[in-house]
């Protein structure tokens, strides 16, 4: 905020190719890419931005295996200690069938934990965000490709670069 001239610029493009072209040009000039907003995931962008915290898979694995182990423990405790019941002479600890419920429960726990981890690493739910106030931002969920870049010093050269690359509209972001 101390240097108002380096406010990030949001550029609107009509095609994903134009966005990728602008992204390469801006990066070559030494500007910092903050984010891109596209109506569908673009493969070209996956390496371009510094990776977000993405703990989804480890969290899912931990929750899934943990919940499955806990469920197995519960079955073992209830069938062997708390309520031993001789069912047709089968062993109290009937491990082959005791694997079914932990599997189902583990998958459910992994799904729920993964969903929570996904929201957490996206910073959601957050119903309002400064980018929502930008012109044309509502098109990012439909048919426009937006790029958010922080200029390295003065914004004018970056703005020129983005316009050269085919930006329909370049606007300064506030807040």
């Amino acid at each position: 905020m101390s240097r108002p001239s380096t406010k990030p610029l949001l550029a609107e493009f009509e095609t994903p190719d134009a966005l990728v072209r602008a992204l390469r040009l801006a990066r070559a000039d030494g500007h910092r890419l903050l984010d891109a907003f596209t109506p569908f995931p673009l493969e070209e962008l996956s390496g371009a931005l510094e990776p977000a915290r993405n703990p989804v898979r480890p969290v899912m694995a931990l929750a899934g295996f943990g919940a499955a182990a806990a469920m197995y423990g519960l079955q073992w405790y209830s069938a062997v200690y708390a309520y031993p019941l001789n069912s047709g002479g089968r062993p109290l600890h009937s491990w082959p069938v005791f694997t079914l419920v932990p599997f189902e429960f583990g998958v459910l726990a992994a799904a729920v934990a993964g969903f929570a981890a996904m929201l957490w690493s996206c910073g959601l739910p957050r119903l309002n965000h400064p980018v929502h106030d930008m012109p044309q931002f509502e098109r990012a969920s439909q048919d426009r490709f937006l790029l958010l870049v922080a200029p390295k010093d003065a914004p004018a050269p970056l703005r020129r670069r983005l316009e050269e690359a085919g930006a329909l509209l370049v606007s300064e972001m506030h807040g």
Partner: peptide, 8 residues
């Protein structure tokens, strides 16, 4: 939930 179509 405030989804922004961000690349991240």
């Amino acid at each position: 939930l405030g989804w922004r179509n961000s690349a991240r």
